[in-house]
Design a protein around this nucleic acid. Structure first.
Length: 553
DNA sequence: GTAGGGTTAG
């Protein structure tokens, strides 16, 4: 008999005679001696725990096994299972399954393994608890495999434990997968199956409605929820308030915030951050700071996000000095600036042309242990490309790639914009073809940059080609693109082409800018098309725009 | 301890 085999047998017999904790320590210390463990030795430990109803110990032991911290990683729990659940063992096989599956989920192993075990468990006539089933469902939804989660639910809903959480997880999944309709179906299904929806379920679905811009549906859910006697909590209000603000419904957002306070649902950190963000986006910094005081007076502790919101507001107003002071303030409150804080402040400095300060912060963030992100580089590259530091643009591209950060669609667009502004459309298009070789797809912003480039060069043929490609790709051109093309056509004196685009954009409900109107009217006049010019002027006045002073008819 | 809300770049 080999030396190690002898050691193992000795160990096994000692473990069998010892109480669980002692057995475990014997096992753990043996793991350092390069002993090759077998299913028997591992199952003795787990069996000890299970037979003494020490489920959490068994579970944490299995988690350690699964993460390869106890024995070789090739030791899979699934191969252990037959030893634990065979008929000669006294353990409750259902409980063994629950313990192992739960450990599997906690160890964040691929969910397929857990699913396999759930199915096996069901096939052997055991009923997974709601807690267990939910945790597996949640994993599937998290891994963006919602269809699979749905299928598992549909297939097993009569054979597993279910509760309100199950439906909450499914509704969240529906919303994240852009399937609001099915979210509502889950809510009815829940009712049909005899489970009462709770505030969380309603809140989740309301959040989904808001994110899809379906405010009427969200409001209806809110009323429905109150009708069945459920009381909205901080989450419910915050979801709605944030939803309103995100869609520009400022008045509704502020009204709901006041109502929330009246109803006694105390706004918390998230709520205040939402409302603060709304003020900052409106440039209402005075009101933002009043609210900042209010939240602190009410004992709500602000966090890094709160400061980031205020810092962004100040930076967007070009008040980087005050923003910098807030960073010092947050530090003195014991809050460490996050990478977002740095990105915001660097962006602020870039916007006011203080590139040296931005570079200084870039070095500071690196030495503070934070890692620059693709956004960090996008900020710096944009800053360089629009300042005297344009020679540094490619240095930062190189640096980000050296750090293993892949350029995003935004990075490529910034670079296209940079070359287009240098009147180097050849390079700009090279960037586009480079981007297409990755799996990134050009969007409206990308095309607007290139179209503006061609228009600035006076090459309307190429600009129009890109405009047509956008149509083929079913990308809806925005007002920036229309205005750019209109300017281009006016510059080359093509009054009717400009007029056609003006009408096209108005037909799509977009508002041409004043310059587009002014230029088109002037070019029409130059072409002797007085009637068209007059009509356009009338249309312009009707939509509330003021013609420029230089316009004489 | 199994479900819900807030911040950055073109």
């Amino acid at each position: 008999m080999s030396e190690t085999k002898h050691q193992l047998l000795t160990l096994l017999s000692r473990m069998l005679k010892s109480p669980p904790q002692k057995a475990l320590s014997l096992f753990t210390s043996s793991a350092h001696q390069n002993l090759y463990h077998t299913h028997e030795s591992v199952s003795i430990i787990i069996g000890h725990f299970l037979s003494l109803n020490m489920l959490s110990q068994a579970e944490s032991f299995i988690v350690r096994l699964l993460s390869g911290k106890i024995t070789s990683p090739s030791f899979t729990i699934i191969s252990l299972l037959p030893y634990l659940t065979n008929t000669s063992n006294c353990y409750d096989a259902g409980r063994v399954y629950e313990t192992i599956i739960s450990a599997h989920v906690k160890a964040q192993l691929p969910v397929e393994g857990a699913l396999l075990l759930v199915n096996e468990m069901i096939d052997r006539g055991f009923v997974p608890s709601a807690i267990l089933f939910n945790s597996v469902l949640k994993c599937l939804v998290k891994e963006c495999d919602f269809e699979k989660a749905w299928w598992i639910f549909e297939r097993n809903k009569g054979r597993v434990g279910l509760d309100a959480y199950t439906f909450g997880i499914l509704i969240k999944g529906c919303c994240e997968n852009d399937n609001l309709k099915r979210g509502f179906e889950v809510l009815s299904e829940m009712d049909r199956m005899g489970f009462s929806p709770n505030v969380v379920v309603y809140t989740t679905l309301m959040d989904g409605c808001c994110k899809k811009g379906e405010f009427e549906k969200a409001k209806r859910l809110f009323f429905e929820m109150e009708e069945i006697g459920l009381v909205a909590n901080q989450y419910t209000y915050t979801v709605l308030i944030n939803g309103f603000f995100k869609k520009g419904l400022r008045k509704d957002g502020f009204e709901l915030f006041e109502r929330m306070k009246r109803e006694g649902a105390l706004p918390d950190l998230h709520t205040y951050n939402c409302v603060l963000n709304a003020y900052c986006n409106d440039g209402e910094m005075r009101k933002a700071f009043q609210l900042f005081d209010e939240m602190r007076q009410r004992g709500v502790t602000c966090n890094v996000v709160t400061y980031n919101i205020l810092i962004e507001g100040l930076c967007k107003q070009r008040n980087v000095g005050e923003a910098k002071k807030l960073v010092s303030e947050m530090k003195s409150c014991g809050l460490s600036p996050s990478i977002i804080t740095y990105n915001l402040l660097m962006d602020g400095y870039c916007r006011v042309g203080m590139m040296d300060k931005a570079f200084y912060l870039y070095n500071e963030l690196k030495s503070s242990g934070l890692s620059p992100t693709v956004i960090t580089y996008n900020v710096l590259i944009t800053g360089c490309s629009r300042s005297e530091n344009s020679y540094q643009v490619l240095d930062f591209v190189r640096e980000m790639e050296e750090r293993g950060i892949s350029p995003s669609k935004v990075t490529y667009t910034i670079l296209m914009d940079f070359f287009a502004r240098c009147n180097d459309m050849e390079k700009a298009l090279q960037v586009l073809s480079y981007m297409k070789r990755t799996d990134l797809v050009a969007d409206v912003y990308t095309y607007s940059v290139l179209i503006r480039g061609w228009c600035d060069e006076g090459n309307m043929m190429e600009a129009l080609k890109l405009f047509e490609i956008m149509g083929e790709m079913e990308l809806e051109p925005n007002d920036v693109i229309y205005n750019t093309l209109i300017h281009g056509y006016c510059r080359e004196g093509s009054s009717y082409k400009a007029l056609k685009l003006l009408r096209e954009m108005a037909g799509k409900g977009m508002m041409p800018n004043v310059a587009s109107y002014n230029m088109t009217i002037q070019v029409l006049k130059g072409d002797g098309k007085q009637e068209d010019a007059q009509n356009l002027l009338a249309g312009m006045l009707k939509s509330g725009l003021k013609p420029s002073n230089t316009l004489s008819l």
